[in-house]
């Protein structure tokens, strides 16, 4: 800061101008927003709207695409599966994320720092690398099956890829930091004296957890859960690689409509369904928790 002020003084001295009225920037603030705004309108908002529009214009005007989407058991199963996978991933992430965030918040800095390092490393590692690693580890002859058999826990390899187990393990791996990091912040802000007070009033550890700590952490957990759920709903890569054809999710269906079936009408309709659900949940998040949950990455 001192350097900056000195620089400011130096600039003033250098130009030798008398202090005058502060002038405005040559371009007004709004003009500065325009390039970014144009980019997002032309290459984001308009193309997305055009895609959604195709759902009611192709192959002919009307809502036939939506009728087909809702009327088919195959598609309904994909909707159900998308929600199921997202819900399971969210629950598992919370169940692991809360105790980990709690531990990190109370461990001495020197012990917590390397654990944070591992968390950040896993988060910054290439998405495909992480998914590939799980495909290798979980395959029939993979390390995990081999060790379980070696330990005598199972006799035959467990099927852990191309099913719900595989998707859950792979996606929880990706989502975990998005739960742990915000929850850590929430727990750090809690005054330990509140819990000491609970102890002094005779609360057992379990009572203190249930009646004091959990209610204090609950808003953070809800915000994290909603964020993970919304992110999972639209996931494409990991479900496509770790899930089987029986576990197809909505994002994969959209890609398939467009890439393999070249059916833009159905693709647009499925995209609209995903978009509406995502935006509705996002609006709920803003309503309940403000923008705090945004930008976890």
């Amino acid at each position: 800061m001192a350097g900056v002020t000195r620089q400011a003084a130096a600039i003033g001295g250098g130009t030798g101008l008398a202090p005058g009225r502060p002038r405005r920037l040559p371009a007004g603030p709004f003009a500065l927003v325009v390039p970014g705004l144009l980019l997002l309108v032309v290459f984001f908002a308009l193309p997305v709207l055009a895609l959604l529009l195709r759902s009611v214009t192709e192959p002919e005007p009307g809502f036939a695409n939506y009728a087909a989407l809702i009327g088919s058991g195959t598609y309904l199963k994909i909707f159900f599966n998308t929600f199921l996978v997202s819900a399971v991933v969210t629950l598992v992430s919370l169940a692991i994320g809360f105790p980990v965030a709690w531990t990190l918040a109370i461990l001495p800095q020197g012990v917590a720092a390397p654990i944070f390092g591992v968390l950040i490393l896993s988060m910054w590692t290439n998405l495909l690398t992480r998914t590939y690693a799980w495909m290798v580890l979980l395959q029939r002859t993979g390390v995990i099956n081999k060790s379980l058999i070696g330990l005598g826990l199972i006799d035959a390899p467990l099927p852990m890829v191309n099913n719900l187990t595989g998707v859950t393990i792979g996606m929880t791996y990706i989502m975990l930091p998005f739960v742990v990091l915000p929850l850590y912040g929430v727990i750090r802000r809690i005054d330990p004296a509140i819990l000491q007070a609970a102890a002094l009033c005779g609360a057992s550890r379990f009572q203190a957890l249930r009646l004091v700590l959990l209610p204090l952490v609950a808003p953070g957990m809800a915000a994290g859960a909603l964020m993970v759920f919304v992110m999972s709903l639209g996931y494409f890569v990991t479900p496509a690689l770790l899930g089987g054809t029986a576990n197809m999710m909505l994002a994969e269906l959209i890609a398939q409509f467009v890439q393999s079936l070249v059916n833009w009408g159905m693709g647009g309709a499925a995209a609209l369904v995903l978009l509406v659900v995502t935006l509705a949940l996002y609006a709920l998040q803003l309503r309940l928790f403000g923008t705090a949950g945004l930008g976890g990455r």
Partner: peptide, 18 residues
């Protein structure tokens, strides 16, 4: 900030068409 919350597959399909 909306491109951050929109599922990227929707943007991909839309831009692909354009």
């Amino acid at each position: 900030l909306t491109p951050m919350i929109l599922p990227v597959v929707i943007l991909a399909v839309a831009l692909y068409a354009l």
